[in-house]
């Protein structure tokens, strides 16, 4: 006998129905596939554009911050230093902005068909993950080009780095996406938020040049640990500072839970106010 479906006021918003999401798992793939397909339709270079953004930013940052401003880079070649930061930062920022737009971008579907709404912001993160994978390969090529050898520790640690980044991006993404349904201001605020984020995350400068109280801002930023650890690992440095990663996990898990909670609380009415 098929399972009974009960439709009640305000859904049941605290218990995320994981089995249901599992049943709809193909939709993750389908949405991600659609987004990637659509992004490069009618472009000549297609998926090569993924490489464009990090490489151009790396070039510009290397000239202005590395060569002209002479920002130290923990004894790494500045381009490699900044590319490692950008690979993570671009993943985070594109996942965040895509998932923030995911609900209103799919308004037509939300108003017509039922499926677990959670799939939309999460599949945007998956899409950004595909880009991350490609740029990460570029980073590895750059590592070898500059004559370094990554530490083997990267194999067990990389998943942790990804988990922290994904928790942050999807947690904030779910929150922003639900807020965006009601307040379209999000679209204007988010670019500023991301721009500020780039400067309070050690992407273009190392954590080591910040000393006073300002350092605490960076330390509670989960991406700080992710980026610093990645840099240490790709050049095979012996002792990455794992305490930063632990702080990262401690901060990113509540952020994710908050985003999820807010999303679930507002989910039932998306179709009414979208």
């Amino acid at each position: 006998m098929t399972k009974e479906i009960v439709i009640k006021p305000n859904g049941s918003f605290l218990d995320v129905d994981l089995r249901e999401i599992w049943r709809y798992r193909e939709l993750f793939y389908i949405f991600a596939w659609r987004d990637i397909k659509l992004r490069y339709k009618q472009t000549v270079l297609g998926i090569i554009w993924v490489l464009f953004q990090p490489l151009v930013s790396t070039g510009i940052f290397s000239i202005f911050f590395g060569k002209i401003a002479k920002i130290p880079s923990d004894n790494l070649p500045y381009p490699l230093f900044v590319l490692a930061g950008l690979v993570i930062w671009n993943f985070f920022s594109s996942a965040l902005s895509a998932s923030s737009q995911s609900l209103i971008g799919n308004e037509g579907i939300i108003k017509k068909v039922y499926f677990p709404r959670l799939i939309l912001p999460i599949s945007s993160v998956v899409t950004a993950g595909v880009d991350f994978f490609i740029t990460f390969l570029v980073l590895l090529v750059a590592v070898v080009y500059f004559g370094y050898l990554p530490s083997l520790l990267i194999l067990p640690v990389l998943p942790v780095l990804l988990i922290i980044t994904i928790l942050m991006a999807s947690g904030l993404g779910m929150f922003m996406a639900s807020l965006n349904v009601k307040y379209r201001d999000v679209r204007f605020i988010l670019p500023f938020f991301i721009q500020i984020g780039l400067f309070v995350t050690p992407v273009i400068y190392p954590l080591s040049i910040i000393y006073d109280w300002r350092k605490w801002f960076l330390i509670i930023n989960p991406l700080t640990g992710v980026i610093e650890t990645l840099r240490a690992l790709i050049v095979g440095r012996a002792q990455p500072d794992f305490s930063l990663l632990i702080i990262g996990l401690i901060v990113s898990i509540p952020v994710f839970c908050f985003g999820l909670f807010y999303f679930r609380r507002t989910e039932a009415y998306f179709a009414d106010i979208a």
């Binding site: 006998m1 479906i5 799919n106 017509k112």
Partner: peptide, 24 residues
């Protein structure tokens, strides 16, 4: 697609709607 303010619906089976074709 939207949730009720009061009352409930019980369905023994899965639902599909042709509320508007061409969705998505």
């Amino acid at each position: 697609i939207t949730c009720p303010t009061a009352g409930d619906v019980r369905l023994q089976g899965n639902v599909s709607s042709l509320l508007e074709v061409g969705t998505g």
